[in-house]
Each structure stands twice: as structure tokens, then as C-alpha cells.
Computed example of a mutant assay.
Amino acid sequence: ATGMFDGVSYGQAILCEGIGTFILMLTIMGSAVDARCRGGFAGLAIGLVVVADIIVFGNITGAAINPARAFGPYLIDSLLGGPIAWSQYPIYLIGPIGGAVLAAFAYDFIGDPRNAEGSCSE
């Protein structure tokens, strides 16, 4: 299960999860969701961003970057009697949801996906 490492505050952990999810969501929006782009390299781009997020944020928060990724291990730990860190679970809700929402607004503003003219392949 994911968890904050020693010396990391609650606020720092939320910020790290938010930043990691923000970068991931921008990549998803730009490479897989935008109708102007071909999806040929979307999987590679998204996978590389996930790897980069894990390398950068793994030693800070465990790099869940997805509330479901944190919830599953927490639930299994609870059911099987393992160590339960439910007090840290809000980190994996607030950070990723906030980061994803901010990324969606930023992409809508910067990427202008409603503009049908232009293409990523041009």
C-alpha cells in the first residue's frame, strides 16, 4: 500500500500527488483524448509519464497518482488484517482529483480542444 515516507508532511504529499496527476492528465488529454491527434503513440507517452511520476514521487508518497490505485491495497490490508493507514488515504483522494481537475481546465484553456482546425500531425 502507498504511504508517506518519513519527513514528508501531509500538505507536501497532497501537492506531490496533485502534480504527478496533473502531468499525467495533461499527457492523456493531449495524446489520447484530443480528436485532433492520432493515438499511435498515446500509450507510449502515457506509460513514460507514469514511469517518470513513479521515479520522481515514489520516494515521497508511493506515487499512486490514482485514487483507485491507493484504495485497493488499503482495502485488502484492512480485510486481511495488515497495517492500515486510512488516515493517509485523503492524500490519494485530494491530490489526484485536484490535479486532474486542474489539468482538464488547463488543457481546455491551452490546448483549445474545441478548435477543430489544425491537427497534431500537421
Rank of each mutant, 00 (worst) to 15 (best):
A64Q: 00
L80N: 14
A42S: 10
A85N: 06
I76E: 04
Q88D: 02
S31E: 04
A32Y: 13
A42K: 02
P73N: 08
L80G: 07
V33D: 00
A45M: 10
F41S: 14
Y89C: 05
I55R: 07
A85R: 13
A68R: 04
G47K: 06
I65L: 15
I60L: 09
P90C: 11
G39W: 10
L48I: 15
S87V: 13
N59G: 09
A45V: 02
S78W: 13
A85T: 07
G82V: 15
D34H: 10
T27S: 03
T61N: 05
R69I: 12
I65H: 06
I28E: 01
A32F: 13
S78M: 11
A52G: 13
A42T: 05
V49C: 05
F57I: 10
L75R: 03
V33M: 01
G47L: 03
A35Y: 09
A32R: 09
I60S: 03
V56H: 06
A35G: 08
S78L: 15
G62L: 02
T61H: 03
I23S: 01
N66A: 07
F71V: 08
I28C: 08
R38E: 14
I84C: 03
P73Y: 02
L79E: 08
A35Q: 12
D53L: 09
M25W: 04
T27F: 07
S78F: 09
G81I: 14
G58K: 01
A70N: 00
G58R: 00
A68S: 12
A52L: 14
L44A: 10
G43M: 06
C37G: 05
G40C: 11
Q88C: 02
G47R: 04
G58P: 06
G43Q: 02
G40L: 11
G40R: 05
I84G: 02
R36A: 07
M29Q: 11
A64Y: 03
A63D: 08
S87H: 10
F57M: 10
L48R: 08
A68T: 13
A45C: 07
D53Y: 02
I60H: 02
F57L: 09
A68C: 12
G39K: 15
T61P: 02
G62N: 03
R69A: 07
I91M: 04
I84R: 08
L44Y: 08
L26H: 07
A70S: 12
G39N: 13
F57W: 11
S78Q: 08
L24R: 06
L79Y: 11
P67S: 04
G30K: 04
G43W: 06
P67A: 08
A70R: 00
G72S: 12
G43T: 05
Q88N: 01
D53N: 14
L80V: 15
S78V: 12
V56E: 07
M29Y: 14
V51P: 00
P73Q: 03
G81N: 09
I65R: 01
A64C: 12
F41Y: 13
